[in-house]
Simulated scan of single mutants.
Amino acid sequence: MIPLQHIAYQSVGLTLLKEFIENEQLSQTNFFRLDELLAITGYEYRQGRISKEEIAEINNSFGRTFLEHTLHGRGFLKPNGYPGDYLFLDRIYTHHISADPRYGIWDQYVQQNGAPDAVRNRKEYFKHMVRAKAKTVSRLNVLNIISGSGRELEELYDSVTDQNIDTTCVEIDEEAIEFSKELNKNQLDRIEYVHSNIFRYQTEESFDFIWAAGLFDYLNDKAFIKLLRRFAAWQKKGGEIVIGNYNEAHNPSRDYMEILGDWHLIHRTEAQLLQLAKKAGFSEDEIHVSRMPDNVILYLHIQTL
């Protein structure tokens, strides 16, 4: 028997959200209403008052054709087997909006969310850091982990005149590698692609800059520490590791991601990131956390002395 309290909560969150999706035409003027309904539903879901099965039923309201033609649908369907695949993120980078108004308004809704903005800012953060580091060394050796579409590399190499940046991309998705190779076809002499799970990746090289911005918020603490220790073995003396992780204290897109996107990340605080780095063997004076003004993604920096 379902408790009456559970039924009441369901009627507040799931019922109103489903009614909105089925009966209202989304427009820029009612984005706020969808945000409100997602916030209600997201709160109750994280309180354990709504089941995953009930959440999954919401997306049945959209229909398969809609899901196959929208950013939202690609995020939910996960055609490559994992959330936030290379093409989904590349469409975020390029501000993709469908020309069909039935789908375009939902693309607009997704694109104006805080998390897509943070993803675009993350790309800018990477480019800024690499350009700055390239000015301080004769040759900069970069390890780009879960390199995805390679859009940040295409923009990076197009923006620098010095030819002193070499990048090794480790990516498990072969389709992503092929996409990135085509996008960066004029830079293949400076980019090496390795098709590998990062936990199985082996190298004798050492790197000035190790970047992993879309991985660690999928790892539990044990895997986080284990992989960070592996990074330490690949880090040049004086080199820097930067880990991106969504901020537990501030992700305005979390309700959308978890309720409509079935996209669940391990959010962490600054204190948690610093503690994990210490458990991985780094000293307090080697680590710090930074952020962009949006404060959605935290960046754990580890620089050996």
Rank of each mutant, 00 (worst) to 15 (best):
A176Q: 08
I177C: 10
K181Y: 06
E182V: 07
L183D: 03
L183F: 05
L183Q: 09
L183E: 09
N184M: 05
N186D: 15
N186V: 15
N186H: 15
N186L: 15
Q187G: 02
Q187M: 05
Q187W: 13
L188K: 04
D189R: 12
I191F: 01
I191P: 00
I191K: 02
E192H: 07
E192D: 13
V194R: 14
V194Q: 13
S196N: 13
N197F: 13
N197Y: 11
N197M: 09
F199Q: 11
T203V: 05
T203M: 04
E204T: 14
S206D: 15
F207Q: 03
F207P: 12
D208H: 15
D208A: 02
F209A: 12
I210A: 09
I210D: 07
W211Y: 14
A213D: 12
G214S: 12
G214W: 11
G214M: 13
L215R: 13
F216G: 01
F216Y: 10
D217Q: 12
Y218I: 07
Y218V: 08
L219A: 13
D221I: 04
K222M: 10
A223M: 06
F224M: 09
K226R: 11
K226P: 02
K226N: 14
L227V: 08
L228W: 04
L228K: 03
R229E: 14
R229D: 07
A232P: 01
W234L: 11
Q235N: 08
K236W: 05
G239C: 03
V242H: 00
I243F: 01
G244V: 06
N245K: 03
N245Q: 02
Y246H: 06
N247T: 09
N247H: 07
N247L: 03
N247E: 04
E248L: 13
H250P: 00
N251I: 00
P252H: 12
P252I: 06
P252V: 05
P252R: 07
S253R: 12
S253E: 07
R254E: 10
R254W: 13
D255T: 13
D255K: 09
Y256Q: 07
I259W: 01
I259T: 02
G261C: 07
G261I: 03
G261S: 10
D262H: 08
H264P: 00
I266T: 02
I266M: 02
H267G: 05
H267N: 10
R268M: 04
R268V: 06
T269A: 01
T269I: 05
E270P: 01
Q272P: 01
